[in-house]
Design a protein around this nucleic acid. Sequence first.
DNA 1: CTGAAAGCGCTTACAG
DNA 2: CTGAAAGCGCTTACAG
Lengths: 343, 343
Amino acid sequence: MNASNLIQQIADTVGVHRSTVLRILRGDLEYRRPSYVQRAERVRELAARYGYRPNTAARAVAEQRFRAVAFLNHRDRQFSHLPSPLIDGVQDALDAAGLGLLLTRCSDTDLADPGYAPKVLRECCVDGLLVNVNALPNPRLYDLLDRPDTPSLWLNIRAGRNCICPDDRAAARSLTEALIARGHQRIGYLGFGTVRHYSKAERPAGYRDAMEAAGLEPCAITGPPGSIAGGGRALLASAMTTLATGPGPAVWIGYSTFECIQVLHLAQAQGLRLGEDLLLASFVDKPGGGNRMLCAEAVAPSYDLGRTGVDALVRRIAGELEQPEIALPWTITTDIEPHPNWA
Amino acid sequence: MNASNLIQQIADTVGVHRSTVLRILRGDLEYRRPSYVQRAERVRELAARYGYRPNTAARAVAEQRFRAVAFLNHRDRQFSHLPSPLIDGVQDALDAAGLGLLLTRCSDTDLADPGYAPKVLRECCVDGLLVNVNALPNPRLYDLLDRPDTPSLWLNIRAGRNCICPDDRAAARSLTEALIARGHQRIGYLGFGTVRHYSKAERPAGYRDAMEAAGLEPCAITGPPGSIAGGGRALLASAMTTLATGPGPAVWIGYSTFECIQVLHLAQAQGLRLGEDLLLASFVDKPGGGNRMLCAEAVAPSYDLGRTGVDALVRRIAGELEQPEIALPWTITTDIEPHPNWA
DNA sequence: CTGAAAGCGCTTACAG
DNA sequence: CTGAAAGCGCTTACAG
């Protein structure tokens, strides 16, 4: 039994036209007269009994819009950071807006191709693109960002418009300030970030902001990915020795827990002990993400990123041409109890 | 400019009927006569220039099938284990089959409702359901498993049919055998698994298989989630003391790294040191997932789970009514270099 | 191989 | 408020 026959059957039973049945089930009319109300009730009841379900694709064809959105990630996972809170935020916002979610992947060449986005829109049956490609600054990518015929919203990049991004600079500043407020003065920053992402520059910048505002000497070690194995290691070792001199523990802020582990390696060689001589802080995706080796962490606003991104995309789909960049605040947590094995 | 006008325009330019343009672009005909080949080429060229894109929704309505699949996860994340290799496997297999992917969520009541699956099928415009709800053994759930009108394939449950599951028993056995082969004899198992999942029983069972086959005394501590705080802790402590007596390190296999950390806590209290007195092994989602505190790990076949699941679902959609359960092998890795901080 | 027609399941004006 | 019609953009027989 196909859907058309089902509708016809309901129409015949109740004694109305097919289009009336569809209209009632669509539910966009308010009935006043009791006889109409009863009839509508009858139709709904029959539809439920027969297990009728509207065909969203047919509706999309008729309405000429799809009521769905594509979530676009890079084929190479390292260019699309996808923590589960991000997916949750996207899904919650889409549910609230009554929109469906399609999962797609793309490559570098796809993004550079001006025909790619329209292709995704029609072939995936979606009205807009939520693009989660954050570490690939292909200049031609920005054509897509501005095209009014293919509404897109970008996550986790700084583009000035049509994007949502965690405010890494403010987060680094707040994290550093929180450490200073707890009495720490010898605070270092280490960033060997392997990704091409604005955070690589913003985190040390925010750190410097806070140190300079407090009249403290910044000590930031940053470098290309491979540098930990080369001179960077010696540089870090000597900075650690310098910072270790003084009352109480020194604090190292890592770009990620990867850097924190590098610090731990060297600490061991230098006879410095975590908790007593040394504390670690970093940026994490989820609370407790640092395996409890951290005394303080900045937790990324991934859930909000998803929600806010969908909301802005919905506005673009609705016709607002350009959306302003929104920078989202991180959550700073201090005084984390260290894991017994690290203490 | 809408799509119909575009097709009409191409048809007018080339001097053929609309339906011929659609037919050429669909590409299901082989042209022999050169004049036809040239004309077809002309049509494709114009379509590309105008940026024509087929409307998949319209095709779905005409074909009465959607060429897409829904990936169904539980609203409560703890009931749907979703590591990224699983998503990758699903997407690779769907790409190969030319199918789209929709992401959906469900609750307990949804699964118990016999009308839910048909609803998802039609309203999400998909031909089948890939269900990733693995820790909720609602008996009514199995109605959905068998319904021939709503093709579904379940991931990570043991249902005997229409499901794909990692073979936890075999993995536990292989992991234990590998440890025995490396000369270990004093091997314990600890499982405080907090989830209702077949692995909770299969992992200790596989461990016992291997121990008994080697003529060794099994020492398995399993219990309800909370038991670590109660008597379970004392039980584990005494078992660890017993196992510690002998040449070389004892090995503890944890249900997950959570259990391994419990062992480490107690080890510290007992003055046992990781690497010398004690080694750890466990089950992980990704290679190196145990933060390098493990000397051996069983890596879950998540990618294969996604691929195999999609393949089986595609067969169900194509008409094969019931698919046999497939149990997938894990990857066993031994002789992992311990992390310097643990060593 | 092409054209003309009917159909997929819906929505949206438009008379009544 | 309803019915009849036209339309959304495709596919699939069916004559020619």
